[in-house]
Design a protein around this nucleic acid. Sequence first.
RNA 1: GGUCCUGUGGCCGAGCGGUUAGGCAGAGCUCUGCAAAAGCUCGUACAGCGGUUCAAAUCCGCUCGGGACCUCCA
Length: 490
Amino acid sequence: MQQELFIYNTLSRSKEKFEPITKGMVGLYVCGPTVYSDVHLGNCRTFISFDLIYRYLLHLGFKVRYVRNVTDAGHLEGDRDEGDDKFAKKAKLEQLEPMEIVQKYTVGFRDVMREFNALPPSIEPTATGHICEQIEMIKEIIEKGYAYEVNGTVYFDVEKYNKEFSYGQLTNRKLEELLEGTRELSGQDEKRGRLDFALWIQAKPETLMKWPSPWGWGFPGWHIECSAMSSKYLGETFDIHGGGMDLQATHHTNEIAQSQACNHKAPVNYWMHTNMLTVNGVRMSKSAGNGFLPGELFTGDHPLLEKGYSPMSVRFFMMQTHYRSTLDFSNEALQASEKGYARLMNAVKTLESLKTASTSTSNITELKQKCYEAMNDDFNAPILVANLFEGARIINSVNDGKETITVDDLQLLKTIMHDFVFDVLGLKAENANAAHDKALQGVMEVILEIRKEAKAKKDFATSDKLRDELAKNKITIKDTKDGVNWSIEE
RNA sequence: GGUCCUGUGGCCGAGCGGUUAGGCAGAGCUCUGCAAAAGCUCGUACAGCGGUUCAAAUCCGCUCGGGACCUCCA
């Protein structure tokens, strides 16, 4: 079943056959979070999308080195090449050391990813852990003549670079067009060109996070970390670089420029961009104020949410939309996914108790084929899901005795369902505790209501029996003047 | 202003030249003590107007919506 995998490449704006640099191996780099606040759901969507991609590559048998960085320094507020570092700013607000901020939100981010059942990357390098590499790279860019220093700050010379390379290739734009969209340089600007961006930024006296460099104390610009770390772990040219679409125009464009200036070759063969998550048609973002945290989503504790949704039903919700499409968020859509997810998981459970027959009424091999075709076509998870529902239909029909299946086909069906539902889509049976607790609560309410009615009718035989039988099951009932309490003995 | 993306049945969302996407909701039927679950059947959707074609949701043009990026964000 080794068909060809096709990937939509932002560089060419088309689906291309995927051919790794080294047979059987894939180098994958994804721009990770900036850990200066809680991740919101929009961030999660990107990482869950790439988790699907990572999982499918693994499923196909590739040895994948998946690098996802953690930006813990150098990400400025505003593109003024000045101002406070995000971490330092937040640190002042929270009265914490910058690295306390980093630690706090890094841990939070990993917890959330675990809840969504996202596999950890092979390497999660941090910007602060690779200051030397970044400095070395900046030095090299200066040596090659594509950067210049002004008062301890180093800028990338975009116009010079553009003379030999193509700066706007990722967004298919010409330099002149890009220039039109930028403001004029004022007399106070240190930059030579309007599009020039900082590689290294001079520290101010109050800057908390700073390192020594050939240009004095300072800190790295945002874009250089990804170039430095991706080339360190994946080589000067690697297979796939991914990230959210919002990074395409600036961050990734600058990454290409940095690496190309340094090595004189394209750093990445396939650029992949995931689309945004919207709420009521508007992009979820920090500035729009319509972003909610994963925790709020799980508990339902947010004005936009009617109720809580489990991590797996949210993950399933995301899997029903292609990664390159925007995904609009609504309670109705989420509830639909919740039910669909339950139906799929029920079918997988039913699979274990199916009876076999001498013939099959469904073509399981064809189903398998369709599943692979869907995923090989640029990771089309929605179509995969549709095929899995066809599998669910078959399972239920066999279970009802309306269809039959052979031993071999049943085995194949089990393989398909398990491989794709668990390994590829990354779904898992929900931790049953929450559901059980809720169910138990309901059961107890029913029992206590019956007991209350019995007591009202002075049917104490029944009421006492209920209390005694529950006690035998380690559930204690206490009548108080405010009503009935119950608890479970530990 | 510039560069793009997009408009699919009640909702979400695939498809992107000829074939039932799928899920949720709704209606009917089967099953069933009742209910649920499950299965079957059903709405015959592609913003509007033109054009290309034997054939268009799918290609082209125009009109009208929605959104993204160009400024920190996955």
